[in-house]
Design a binder for these strands. Structure first.
Lengths: 211, 211
DNA sequence: CGCGGCTCGTGAAACATTTCACAAATGCAC
DNA sequence: GTGCATTTGTGAAATGTTTCACGAGCCGCG
């Protein structure tokens, strides 16, 4: 049911399909074809069917997929049938945006704590959250039963903070710092680098204009 | 010199190499080997050499690469020898974080205007910027000579805003809205979906625990 | 019931990317 | 100058991903 190795690109698409399935469900549709999903997600019907086929066969030939059933199955595959407790490391503007981002909570990711090094930020409140001292990071991870850390700091302190997070037993990090974190193999790291996205746009513009 | 088609994954790595080259330059290193770059970037020396080989041969056998020269060459390849004028569409918290993000300005991306639909936000100031009415979007694009738009809105208005941006002649969009934008082929779109990143982490956790 | 129009599931083919492996250069020591 | 330790650049092989093509199943209709 869960194959050994599924490509990251496939998993990302599954998450996208889920988003559009929920949209279809809101519109009252009860079945959807691979072609319809593909069009919304910007891919092909064959790709949709192949992606799903890694995990089983959920459709009815001639009909398509049952919208609520496939949605439930995708949530199960992606591990979204439960909620996760998330710690924000860094209390800058981006952290603030993430803390309030409804898209996280809607998907089961609850920000339960925020830490920072800056005394001017420590003690300030963000909605129901209070920014805590980064010195208390280890205690907070344990007390709040944190499962996922989001690293939203400058490059310099990122590796050391990652080491401390790993030492507490955290095994999932979403890293916004522009460094390649060195962590043990059991720890899952996803990197997001916003500047790189703009730079690839710049490359595309540059290259198109030269043709 | 600029080959027909270079993989997106290669371009992203070039941007990452550039970041570490600048770090090496700050430390006063004047040459760097593919292996040293690879270690920092989390890849292999062969990958680094292959990536660079698409654009020419910049190294000296036995020695490595000249740090400032390779940096300059990467900036040229990525189109970062000039500055870009960027418009933020949407004035939420994420937009605020992006507007202030030093990493953009450092790379040549200047946010020159912000628009929103919410009357409560229009007229408020963000540093030197004043939030403008989205109704004036077309005028602003022309007056400010905007080249890149960053779409930071909910899903619903995103497609319509993209249509308006495309109509003004904008050919590069960084899209944070969770929709697949339909645009003409000449328009470059990069999608960033923060919830999807967390969901792929969730998948990894889920899957690991089942093994 | 049998037929026709859909749509899925999936092996095989096509295509893309990464890794390998090694010749060719380079600098340094002596 | 010669030999040695390095490190690049690059075809070829290996691996990974997407697309194709088609058999098989399902529904509705007469």
């Amino acid at each position: 049911m869960h194959p050994r190795k599924v490509a990251d690109s496939t998993v990302r698409r599954l998450a996208i399909y889920l988003r559009f399935l929920e949209e279809f469900a809101d519109q009252g549709a009860d079945t959807v074809s691979s072609g319809a999903l593909a069009q919304r997600a910007g891919t092909t019907s064959a790709q949709v069917r192949k992606d799903l086929s890694f995990f089983g066969s959920f459709g009815k030939r001639g009909l398509g997929y049952d919208v609520p059933a496939l949605g439930a199955r995708l949530r199960q595959i992606l591990g979204l049938t439960r909620r996760y407790r998330v710690l924000l490391v860094g209390a800058g503007r981006l952290a603030g945006a993430l803390a309030q981002y409804a898209g996280f909570a809607a998907r089961g990711f609850d920000v339960v704590a925020v830490v920072d090094r800056d005394p001017a930020k420590i003690g300030t409140c963000w909605g129901a959250l209070r920014v805590d001292d980064v010195d208390r990071l280890e205690k907070i991870v344990v007390a709040e039963r944190v499962e996922i850390a989001i690293l939203v700091t400058p490059a310099e302190p990122a590796q050391q903070l990652a080491d401390r997070l790993v030492a507490t037993g955290i095994t999932a990090i979403l890293n916004f710092a522009p460094v390649q974190l060195q962590v043990p193999g059991v720890v899952e790291v996803k990197n997001v680098n916003l500047a790189v996205e703009l730079e690839t746009l710049s490359y595309a513009l540059q290259h198109r204009e030269e043709n």
